[in-house]
């Protein structure tokens, strides 16, 4: 109890000057009888890029997926503690999961466009939300593709199948698809691990541009990527949050020896 209280104080001190969007309090998660997350306390600042790093199986993807309740679909998942999104408990009975996922979008490791035209990939979400007018949809498609820095590359072939694009382009279309429904938060689970270095850098530039409008939480195995693009970094190990601080501090002078050992490649 004492340690949990101290952790909470430690974490909230870090973001005292920032507005936060998620407040995770003493959060635990089990897959059946296996506990995957232990007592995590973490506040995610708004309009910043927060990176979550840690070795495979440390619980970072699980934590990310929990933020828009993607884990609901996995049988046997049990949680305790609280996750507040804009001060509202995301597990409360009244929470509409679809509404949460509209506001908290997700970009996956492998680009997963729909097997449809580029245009339809973007227009699909807004259409489901009831937008029918072609003119408005056109505007959304252009704005979203521009927002994902891919408009100039695809504007002349919007009716082509999205699969005809390169991996990096497909990933940016997927980001545009997220932007089309105007979320507040973008969750990114290893968004560049399937991409070549140039496409990776393009996505990284895009992520940095997006932070003015969106809060971005990115899980990455690429530590240099976390160091390059994020404002804050959380290091997780064996389901616990070991350290959460400014990215500059974490990569230059981490406080916890386990963080130091991980980022310097001593284990993991």
């Amino acid at each position: 109890m004492g340690v949990a209280m101290m952790d909470k104080k430690f974490v909230s001190n870090i973001v005292e000057n920032d507005e936060y969007i998620f407040n995770i309090e003493d959060f635990n998660l089990w897959y059946g009888s296996n506990q995957a997350i232990y007592g995590v306390n973490l506040t995610i600042p708004k309009n910043k890029i927060t990176a979550v790093i840690g070795p495979s199986g440390c619980g970072k993807s699980t934590l990310l997926k929990t933020l828009n309740r993607m884990n609901d679909m996995i049988p046997g998942v049990k949680t305790s503690g609280q996750i507040l999104y804009q001060d509202q408990d995301i597990f409360r009975k009244k929470q509409m999961v679809e509404e949460l996922r509209t506001q908290v979008g997700m970009v996956f490791q492998k680009p997963n466009p729909f097997p449809k035209s580029i245009y339809e990939n973007i227009a699909y979400g807004p259409r489901i939300h009831g937008i029918k007018k072609k003119k408005i949809l056109d505007e959304i498609v252009e704005k979203s593709l521009r927002g994902a820095a891919i408009w100039d590359e695809v504007k002349d072939r919007l009716n082509q199948n999205a699969y005809s694009l390169s991996g990096g382009q497909q990933q940016r279309v997927c980001i545009a698809r997220c932007l089309a429904i105007e979320p507040n938060v973008l969750l990114m689970d290893e968004p560049t691990s399937a991409l070549d270095p140039i496409s990776t850098l393009k996505i990284e530039e895009l992520i940095k541009d997006l932070k003015d409008k969106y809060t971005i939480i990115i899980v990455t195995h690429n530590m240099q990527q976390a160091a390059r693009i994020s404002d804050k970094t959380a290091f997780m190990l064996n389901g616990e949050l070991v350290e959460f601080t400014d990215t500059d501090t974490l990569f230059s002078n981490p406080k916890d020896k386990r963080t130091e050992d991980y980022i310097t490649g001593r284990f993991g």
């Binding site: 990569f251 230059s252 981490p254 980022i263």
Partner: peptide
């Protein structure tokens, strides 16, 4: 090696 933290120092 792209060292960080104490290795870089």
């Amino acid at each position: 090696q792209q060292p960080v933290a104490s290795d870089l120092r």
